[in-house]
């Protein structure tokens, strides 16, 4: 029995007013479950990133609602939303957004520090997570001394160090070559995904589609198709 992680229904989001009005999401509904790796795919401008932002409590929809583990997140105020994102979600950004002047361990420790965990303990935990993502011995290096794939692993470590229930990954392979991209996503599937975690990935990189449990296709602000990878196989 699959447990629902995210439930979204009737999501509508538009930008601008009058003639400049653009509707990015048109009555989008979906469910994501714990233990699955859900892909949202589609061409540029199809509304993937907008959907991801709405699902993760970053962008307020004009209509519809989003429940995470049964709680409607868009009834929360700004501080409660920040708290929700900090404690329930982990983010991996397309460009990593690591602080170049901090060490990799300090970068990874940021979510823990924001949770008021003591500095030394946060760094210890961060170092352990760097080991988990295969960056043993690189805790003291600045991110710029690492390769693109390694920086992506640092970003993943930062996303999971707080043990979030839901991991949000935005174009995780966009800055990586094919082999490294596949290795990273394969690693996430093997080591990060578990029965208590849901991973939502926005991508248009077809080279990594094989790792998805389920893929939702978007076009022009609507979900056009949903399929299980196993169905194809």
């Amino acid at each position: 029995m699959l447990r629902t992680a995210i439930h979204a229904s009737g999501l509508v989001k538009w930008f601008g007013e009058g003639e400049a009005k653009t509707t990015a999401l048109k009555e989008v509904s979906l469910e994501a479950f714990f233990g699955e790796m859900l892909y949202i795919v589609g061409p540029s401008g199809s509304g993937k990133t907008t959907l991801l932002s709405v699902l993760s409590g970053i962008l307020r929809p004009n209509a519809g609602n989003v429940s995470v583990e049964g709680a409607d997140i868009w009834t929360l105020d700004a501080n409660q939303l920040a708290d929700f994102r900090l404690n329930k979600l982990g983010f991996v950004f397309q460009d990593y957004h690591l602080f170049p002047r901090l060490t990799t361990a300090e970068n990874v420790a940021i979510p823990l520090i924001l949770r008021r965990i003591q500095w030394d303990k946060a760094l210890n935990d961060a170092t352990k997570y760097l080991d988990i993502v295969g960056l043993h011995g690189k805790a003291e290096l600045p991110p710029l001394k690492l390769s693109g794939g390694e920086q992506q692993r640092v970003a993943i470590a930062r996303a999971i160090v707080g043990q979030p229930d839901i991991l949000i990954m935005d174009e995780p392979t966009a800055s990586l070559d094919g082999e490294t991209g596949r290795a990273i996503v394969g690693f996430v599937r093997e080591n990060i995904l578990n029965d208590h975690r849901c991973i939502v990935i926005v991508t248009h990189d077809s080279r990594i589609y094989e790792y998805a449990d389920r893929t939702l296709e978007m076009e022009d602000g609507r979900l056009t198709a949903a399929k299980k990878v196993q169905d194809e196989n």
Binding site: N79, A82, F84, R85, N87, F93, H97, L114
Partner: peptide, 11 residues
């Protein structure tokens, strides 16, 4: 990066 911090959950 400050924006990323905001996304992560910094108030």
């Amino acid at each position: 990066r400050f924006g990323a911090l905001k996304a992560i959950g910094t108030t």
